[in-house]
């Protein structure tokens, strides 16, 4: 089991206590391509933050690749994120004053990899995603789809256990969204990378093999979707 959550609770205490996650039990195997669906306020972003070790939880346990992730120091959390998790964000989150290749290199910089080595590796991943010609461009010189591909290259470069994609198509047009989802699907099928996509779009969720519905802080239905028949409309509304 790659991801194992047992009875995870999370309450925010901003003035009024807000019980966001009310006992999450979730298992995700290595090599799965999963989506987490839910309306806004359902707790899906909180769940993703906990999975990504960006946030902590109050009760329960979370094991990632056999390691208990609980009460980590900032420093430990940073190291785990660096080595085990690759993030893909809705707004890409590239650093604007760094070129594509420098952005991709950054996680390796924090691992202390030498300049030459990480540059070579970053170029390799950019090539894999068809961005060789764009490697020395800044994010503001690229289209949304290109930026998201740079972000995916950055997520892949440390060869993490999981890729966490938070609304990866949220800022993209429908054509580009399809391309990005196909890219993620290809990475899952060809390289066996475990990918978790958080979305509120049924069409996007339908591209994944398993759809986990979350509502009011608890896991609802878990749909097996290997035939991709959960949604019969176009991928994007």
């Amino acid at each position: 089991m790659l991801i194992e959550l047992k009875g995870v609770h999370k309450t925010y205490n901003n003035g009024q206590p807000l019980h966001v996650l009310k006992g999450i039990d979730l298992n995700i195997e290595k090599g799965e391509f999963v989506s987490i669906m839910g309306a806004s306020g359902s707790g899906k972003s909180t769940l993703l933050n906990i999975l990504g070790i960006l946030d902590n939880y109050d009760e329960g346990t979370y094991h990632l690749a056999g390691t208990l992730i609980k009460d980590l120091s900032e420093r430990q959390a940073a190291d785990y994120r660096n080595r085990m998790i690759g993030f893909v964000f809705q707004s890409f989150n590239l650093i604007s004053f760094k070129t594509a290749v420098e952005n991709v290199e950054l996680p390796l910089y924090y691992q202390g990899v030498s300049r030459k080595e990480r540059h070579a590796k970053a170029m390799e991943y950019l090539e894999k995603l068809g961005l060789t010609d764009w490697s020395h461009h800044f994010p503001n010189e690229m289209s949304g789809g290109q930026k998201q591909r740079v972000a995916i290259a950055r997520a892949l470069i440390t060869q993490p256990q999981i890729i966490l994609a938070d609304e990866p198509t949220g800022a993209l047009d429908s054509k580009t969204s399809v391309e990005v989802m196909q890219l993620l699907k290809r990475l899952n099928q060809e390289d066996g990378i475990t990918i978790i996509v958080v979305t509120h779009e049924s069409g996007v969720a339908n591209e994944t093999d398993k759809i986990i519905h979350i509502k009011d802080g608890i896991i609802g239905e878990i749909e097996e979707n290997t035939r991709h028949t959960a949604w019969d409309g176009p991928m994007m509304k």
Binding site: G52, L54, E74, R75, A78, D79, R81, N82, R83, F87, N93, L94, I95, L106, P107, Y110, Q111, R154, T158
Partner: peptide, 9 residues
């Protein structure tokens, strides 16, 4: 962003 991708404090 830096912290998310693994920068220590």
């Amino acid at each position: 962003i830096r912290k998310a991708i693994g920068a220590r404090p």
